[in-house]
Design a binder for these strands. Structure first.
Lengths: 256, 256
DNA sequence: GCCTAGGTCCCGTAC
DNA sequence: GTACGGGGCCTAGGC
């Protein structure tokens, strides 16, 4: 990791560092008192306060307040930058063409500016809960219903992408939709769209929503739309997969 | 803004700074070579690489790679921390009770550690496109249909929160749902849920989806569900509001 | 480019 | 706490 940091930089030092850092596609970090104006898909304003600003090599911009995970303002990758000094203030503008939007950051004071070159080639592996459920279901469809057989692990319809297309023990087609969290109304509607499309060709088509739990309203809707709900939670699925000797790595790590 | 920063700290300096910073609910910034293991709602692993780590005073954790707006790993506000040295490595763990999840960050090298106290009491003002549309519609319902009258700006149903409840020139009830962006299938289903509930009491109820555009599938669904779609884009609404002498602030700013 | 769906979504708000 | 919807959501994957 190469880079430098300047504490309480002069305006000129700061401008130079910013231009250099962004121009060379480095990571730029700034701490200071700044205000933010945004206009694009929406618009926002935020008066002066002490915040952390980050510009990444891909053109991403992040402005963080002292609380919350989410940045208060940001700009997605690919943004273009302009920096200048005006009336003793350092201004940094980020611009994006499509959709057209811009963020203007005005610094009243800069306490810290840093420019670093990060090397990070590692692969990020994410194991999502839905993935785990689906994997377990494919190995053991009886987790949802005895006699169920998986026909297609994914099926593309006009209405969208079906999680799992199956047939039951009576050869009736079954659409299975997984939700890792408590299923809400939108989940029911999503399943309903798939089943609707298929029922036009075959009114016998069943739809099963599989989730660890379901909201009261969603359950009512499941019934009124002639769909079904089956309880299945992720922990159970993990156990099933483990028992089939395909342990999930991060679990092992945290067991040690 | 008070704080300090240490470049290439020793392990001991680093541990001390981390404990002090988090304990005092300050902003902690670290640059270094680290790996991340997460287990909770999902699970993930990420081998060593050079990254930026942030811990905020409210317990939020962010780990950023050199690209993308989104952190590769994070932990929401309210998380609890533990830091220690093990076999020459600095380990920082963030733990959350509900839902139960933990992030473990292992540093192989630390290039920078900083602890700062930020003061930021400013109010963030966001003007969303949907807000603008609704405001314009309330002042000028004829933007959507001549003779429409707004009865309630919001109406809570079992099925959810209706954007705008109106009656048309024939006194038929009308549910109006706004979308700032191109309306998709979910938007139609959302409107449909509201209208369904109301049609049970009065089959004459109309539902109008108002958006700048609509996907092909969504338009088909609008028709098959006996709903309606009206085009209205945000720019038009802004003009209408401006002409009524209630300019939107951020526009003024960017015009200068 | 459009469209759909997922996300450890986060976040606010009402009940 | 639970439920629901919005977000400048972001990001990935198809087509």
């Amino acid at each position: 990791m190469t880079g430098f940091i300047i504490q309480n930089p002069t305006l000129e030092q700061c401008l130079k560092a910013v231009k250099m850092g962004i121009g060379a596609r480095r990571l730029l970090i700034m701490l200071g008192e700044l205000r933010v104006d945004y206009f694009g898909r929406g618009s926002s304003e935020l008066d002066y306060g002490e915040r952390l600003l980050i510009v990444k090599g891909d053109g991403s911009l992040l402005i963080h307040r002292p609380t919350n995970v989410e940045p208060v303002n940001w700009q997605p990758p690919g943004s273009l930058y302009r920096a200048y000094v005006k009336r003793g203030l350092l201004v940094l503008e980020a611009y994006r063409k499509r959709p057209e939007e811009r963020v203007r950051v005005t610094f009243r004071r800069v306490s810290l500016v840093g420019v670093y070159h990060l090397k990070d080639g590692a692969e990020f592996k994410l194991y999502t809960a839905e993935e785990v459920m689906k994997k377990a279901f494919i190995k053991r469809p009886d987790l949802v219903e005895k006699g169920l057989r998986v026909v297609m692990e994914e099926k593309r319809l006009k209405a969208g992408l079906v999680d799992c297309f199956c047939v039951d023990s009576s050869n009736r087609p079954v659409v299975v939709e997984f939700k890792k969290d408590r299923a809400g109304i939108e989940a029911v509607d999503q399943l309903s769209r798939y089943v609707d499309e298929l029922r036009r060709g075959n009114p016998e088509v069943r739809g099963i929503l599989v989730a660890p739990s379901i909201t009261k309203e969603a359950l009512e809707r499941v019934r009124s739309l002639n769909l079904e709900y089956r309880r299945l939670d992720v922990r159970r699925c993990i156990k099933v997969l483990e028992s089939m000797e395909e342990p999930i790595k991060p679990l092992e790590y945290f067991e040690s």
